[in-house]
Write a protein that binds this DNA or RNA. Structure first.
Lengths: 181, 181
DNA sequence: CCTGAATATGCTGGACCGACATATGTCGCC
DNA sequence: GGCGACATATGTCGGTCCAGCATATTCAGG
């Protein structure tokens, strides 16, 4: 799923600036299942405007740069619907933390434990984000409720596993270090 | 975590060709938590060899191109350990399927259901891969066992949610279409 | 016998990210 | 009151990375 399509998707929820779209991928509902950065959002919006998929309205502000509000046109909506019809590529996960944990035997035990604790904290944060942020906001369509519930189910399982296995893992690390010494 | 580091990590499990490393990211143990493609693996291995982090031994084969077997040097092992010490970046998930499901109200119900069923099948496949493939193979260190268990826990939760909620989701989609009509 | 998959390396065009540049407002803190 | 940190907002740029293609051969299945 390329960035132009993702921008169209973000705009389907209402008109927004490039900055707003970025935020949707950082904190908002999109954060949990896709990524996009400024470096690709702004060029994508420009091309989308050129091709007539979105309209741009400059909103003057004093001090700050103008907010350039983008809104979907009918052509844009059609293009989004078309893109949504394509067969989805398989999910991609990129987790530095799991790589590090996989090779925990190559680093000091305390470092590995720190990574694990950070990973647990991260997942707890994600879970609370889903619980408050979005539940109050927008879960109107069946699709949105379904995806929201999926996120909660997966994060809860992750937190549970991390909590339950943490101490056993730390013990095993300590045993291994004792064996070497 | 950049591709050179990921190559070093793959080689920590034993000498391998570029093709072998690719397979480790496609089917092997690494598939579940990171990605890397030919287009970045081969250049990375070349640079790694130039900087002395790996050695290369050509293994002649008739018919096929030579297998170029790469093995970690001490410098390479040090470099890997160093990279593993860096603070991990937060996990990144990219899921086309969840984007499509989020906007299920914009596409035909049958298409959405097909995506959902495909997503469920995909997760079942991943789970069985973890269950047989790796459990028999290499789960020697605490880290490897821990990461393996984490994967199983998360995939199981995903499959369970998808199975339990599928029918209710399909019904809601049908209700919505009835409302429009 | 032919098609497709697997083995194996490598290139290239284009997409994409991370970091930076720019300019100002605001809020807490000492 | 002033200072740093952070938020708002757009945009560029270097470099990384991926998907798809090219190449060449073997082997299994139809």
């Amino acid at each position: 799923m390329d960035v132009p399509t993702l921008c169209l998707a973000a705009l389907a929820r209402g008109p927004a600036s490039g900055y707003d779209i970025r935020k949707a991928f950082e904190d908002g509902p999109f954060a949990h299942f896709h990524e996009a950065s400024f470096g690709s959002i702004y060029p994508a919006l420009r091309r989308l405007a050129e091709s007539g998929a979105v309209t741009v309205t400059a909103e003057t502000q004093d001090g700050r740069p103008d907010r350039r509000i983008h809104a979907l046109t009918d052509a844009g909506r059609r293009r989004l619907r078309q893109a949504l019809l394509a067969a989805p590529k398989p999910d991609q996960l990129r987790s530095d933390a799991l790589v590090i944990l996989f090779f925990a035997h190559l680093i000091p035990a305390e470092t590995a434990v720190a990574v694990l604790d950070g990973y647990l904290a991260h997942h707890r944060r994600l879970l609370s984000q889903l619980d408050c942020d979005e539940l109050g906001a927008e879960c109107e369509t069946p699709g949105q409720r379904f995806v929201h519930g999926f996120g909660v189910a997966v994060y809860e399982a992750a937190v549970r596993y991390l909590e339950n296995q943490r101490d056993a893992f730390v013990d095993q690390l300590a045993d291994d270090e004792a064996k070497i010494a």
